[in-house]
Design a protein around this nucleic acid. Structure first.
Length: 328
DNA sequence: GGCTTGAATCGCTCCCGTTT
DNA sequence: AAACGGGAGCGATTCAAGCC
């Protein structure tokens, strides 16, 4: 168990991908570059886009676009904005790095990681963060081939912003996957876990997360709903003025778990008519009268200790009761 | 080859303090 | 009051080692 931490990433993931020899930088006509299918990032618009066009008119495209072959053309993995801006600037071709033989998942990782490195994480929409973290998480938890891919992307783009902590972290420090990612992005493991839940949300609901009409934490609860339930919720939200707070999200989840979520219940939860959860399995907490407590415990005794004593006492009580029943 | 067992890990909940 | 990030810790799962 302990030797693992002594191995370097290269030892672990060594030769599984051999990219350097397949990598070639060249120039390709813009007309042969296709966007990556459903990539999770919003493209630049308005002033931001105009600035980019202006910069490209002046200096050209400096950082090569990363592409992979697709049929006779090429699919853009990184650089959608640069390509669009270059087209608008009137360029006919852009510098590209062609990556051959990538699995779809690896391609997706490049799409998300490069985006992450070029934009500050804070600028991203929640759903974009979720997608990026989810890809990163997949890459780390499938102990296979892609950890080196992350490194390679890094060097390709000369990114030095976000990830400096990761590279400078003490040798041999072993972190759980969530913590590892969290350290890289400066988020707690809990936040990583929440974003990973968000990445599982139906696209229809992700939009509400992005517009901040649904909070992250409410989104986490909604992510436990079945796909069709999520779409149902999104539908109801779109056609009504309802808001989802954490309470409603919790209630929806409880109904979903109890298989009681349908169009009617969903509607009444969202409208606020129905706000109590379906009969929870958990017993409601009970309060003990202070008088009762002071009868058996000194005032300085803390709650955990009191609970412990109560538990022991009850165990004893039920045990003797059982015996009595058997004796009869 | 199957099984048991114990440690590691993961996903999660509960709770708390802070911020808005 | 609601939303949030973070700490602690729990239960379930996974995985490897040791056994038959």
């Amino acid at each position: 168990m302990s030797e693992k931490k002594l191995m370097s990433l290269d030892d672990m993931f060594g030769d599984s991908i051999n990219t350097t020899e397949q990598e070639n930088q060249t120039k390709i006509e813009i007309s042969r570059l296709m966007p990556f299918e459903n990539h999770p990032f919003k493209l630049y618009e308005g002033e931001r886009f105009e600035n980019m066009v202006r910069s490209i008119k002046e200096f050209g495209v400096i950082v090569p676009v990363i592409v992979r072959p697709k049929g006779y053309d090429y699919e853009i993995l990184s650089g959608h904005n640069r390509v669009n801006a270059a087209k608008a600037a009137g360029l006919l071709e852009v510098p590209v790095v062609i990556k051959e033989n990538l699995e779809d998942e690896e391609a997706m990782l490049i799409v998300t990681e490069t985006n992450l490195m070029q934009r500050s994480f804070g600028d991203m929409l929640h759903s974009e963060r979720a997608a990026a973290l989810s890809e990163h998480h997949k890459a780390l938890s499938s102990q296979g081939k892609r950890t080196d891919l992350l490194k390679e992307i890094e060097s390709l783009l000369n990114a030095d912003e976000i990830r400096d902590e990761e590279t400078s972290s003490p040798v041999g420090k072993k972190l759980r996957t969530h913590e590892q990612i969290g350290e890289a992005y400066n988020l707690s493991k809990n936040s990583i876990a929440r974003y990973l839940r968000i990445s599982k949300l139906a696209d229809e609901l992700k939009e509400f997360i992005d517009s901040e009409e649904i909070s992250i934490r409410a989104g986490v609860d909604l992510s436990y709903l079945l796909d069709e339930e999520q779409i149902l919720i999104a539908d109801i939200l779109t056609s009504n003025e309802f808001k989802i707070d954490m309470k409603k999200a919790e209630t929806l989840r409880a109904f979903s778990e109890g298989k009681k979520l349908n169009e009617e219940t969903a509607y009444s939860i969202l409208s606020g008519e129905l706000n109590k959860k379906p009969k929870a399995n958990k017993p409601a907490p009970i309060k003990l009268k202070p008088k009762l407590i002071s009868k058996f415990f000194a005032p300085e005794i803390k709650q955990p200790e009191i609970e412990e004593v109560i538990e022991k006492a009850l165990e004893l009580y039920f045990e003797t009761q059982k015996k009595e029943v058997l004796d009869e």
